[in-house]
Structures are given as C-alpha cells and as structure tokens.
C-alpha cells in the first residue's frame, strides 16, 4: 500500500531530509585518505543526535551502525569499520535519519583523493541517471518510468544496473511501498499521485550487474569485483513536479 502525504506532512518531512542532506555533505567533505569508515560513522551519529534526531539505520533489521559506507566494489550497506580510505578509492555514503516522526534517506558516492578518469565517469553517469529518474517524477507517470530512464542512461554509458536492491517509498517508515527498481520497461507499476514520497537510488556497477551479500548479512559487493557507485535522493511528487527534499545546499566533492 502506498501512503500519500498531505502538503503539511511533506513540509514536516523537510526537517529530516534537510538534516540528512547536511550531514551527508559534511561527511563527504570529511572524506579523505587515512580517514576510516568508522570515523565517518561516529561523525554521522553525533551530527544527527546533536540535531535532536535519530539515525534511521541503527538497529534497523539489526543493522549495527548509523551510516552505510561502501568502499570500491562494495555496492551498498557496507558496515563502517577500521578500514582506512586510500587515495584512489571511492566510497558510497548512505545515510538516513528520523526527525518529527518522518524519515529522510540520501546517498552519495565520493572519490577519495585522486581517482582515475573512468571512475569519475562512473560517478558522473550514476548521478546523471538519478537526475533522469527524478525527471520522470510527475503526477500520472508510472513507477517503472523512473527505472527505465535510469537504466537507459546507465547502459548508454556502458555500465550496468544492480537488480537485487531497489528504491522505495518513504515517510513514517523507512521502507514503504512502492518498490522502485532501477531498470525495466516503461509504463508499468502504480501511477504516481500527488503526495507520494520516493527514495530513488540507482546502484551502478562498472562491470556486470551481479552482486552478492557477504557473510555479515549486509555488505553487498559486485561479483566480478568491479567498482560500484550509488546516489540517492528523497523526492516528493507534487503538482508542480518533483520536489527533491534532500537537495544539498553545498555541492559534494563528487559533483566536481
């Protein structure tokens, strides 16, 4: 069942989403060679708690941390650890918070130090595909139109789309209906209606699309060991089109 939010509820959702966007921008700015993903997690949690909010992922279905930090071939749900980032790595930072009864969810992939041009292209294409997906968000279009636009752009760029994980509705729960696949034929699935709030999150692999989940039950990695990028925004469906609730006021490093 898809929950539509009233304009007043969407206004209330702004707080959680603006906070998570700011936290993510701060984490992206902090990312540098030598920093560990546990450092990023600790910073994320303190920023969220200082703002009077709760980290959304901590304890969610047993997830042990506030942040998902997925390095290189890790696709999503990387558990922060004492692993130090190295010049040339990429790290996907995925963060969610709960504030005023609503969730906000957003992700970005950041290059660490200097990375190869082809890797920068992976980040750029993934971010562009997210924008293409968001551009499909309007009253009356179908859920699969979003995934189709993402898949077309990603595959035109020579990369592949992960099938095992999808975007989701978001609101008073972190994962609501509908599921938003990042692939598929257009014109299928529920029609978008005013007040739906969607977390759209393409996960893009440099090599083949297949992934597997490690023994920790969370960390997803590419089967072929290729690099993977992940960008996510929480977007509301409004009369005037898509409203990106997690827009960062400061551009993260990946946008360079």
């Amino acid at each position: 069942m898809i929950v539509c939010k009233s304009p007043a509820e969407i206004e209330r959702m702004r707080a959680a989403n603006a906070l998570v966007a700011d936290v993510l921008a701060a984490l992206a700015a902090m990312t540098a060679p030598g920093v560990t993903t546990a450092d990023l997690d600790a910073r994320a949690e303190s920023l969220v708690r200082d703002a009077g909010a709760e980290p959304a992922f901590k304890g969610y279905r047993g997830y042990p941390a506030s942040l998902c930090a997925s390095v290189n071939e890790q696709v999503v749900h990387g558990i922060p650890s004492s692993r130090a980032l190295v010049d040339g790595d990429i790290v996907s930072l995925d963060m969610g918070v709960k504030l005023n009864g609503f969730y906000g969810d957003t992700a970005v992939t950041v290059p660490v130090g200097t990375v190869e041009p082809e890797v920068l292209r992976l980040l750029r294409v993934t971010q562009e595909s997210l924008a293409k997906g968001i551009a499909q968000v309007r009253i009356g279009s179908r859920v699969s139109d979003i995934g189709h636009a993402i898949q077309r752009h990603v595959e035109a760029g020579g990369f592949s789309v992960v099938r095992e994980f999808v975007g989701h509705g978001i609101g008073a729960a972190l994962h609501e209906d509908p599921q938003i696949a990042n692939y598929g034929e257009p014109g299928h699935g529920p029609r978008l209606a005013e007040g739906m709030v969607l977390a759209i999150e393409p996960m893009v692999n440099m090599g083949k699309p297949a992934v597997r989940v490690l023994g920790d039950g969370w960390t997803a990695v590419t089967r072929d060991g290729s690099l993977s990028a992940h960008f996510e925004h929480t977007v509301a469906v409004t009369k005037s089109g898509p409203l990106v609730l997690t827009q960062r006021s400061v551009a993260p490093a990946a946008a360079r």
């Binding site: 959304a56 992922f57 969610y60 279905r61 997830y63 998902c68 999503v76 749900h77 995925d94 969610g96 969810d105 099938r163 095992e164 994980f165 999808v166 975007g167 989701h168 509705g169 729960a173 972190l174 994962h175 609501e176 209906d177 599921q179 696949a181 999150e201 996960m203 992940h230 996510e232």
Partner: peptide, 14 residues
Amino acid sequence: MARVTGDRPDGFDE
C-alpha cells in the same frame, strides 16, 4: 538504505 528487491515493506514484520 536500499530495499532488498521483493521484500515486504516495514510494518509487515511488526
């Protein structure tokens, strides 16, 4: 956090 394709939305497991 991405949702696992095909899983149930939150609330079902409660």
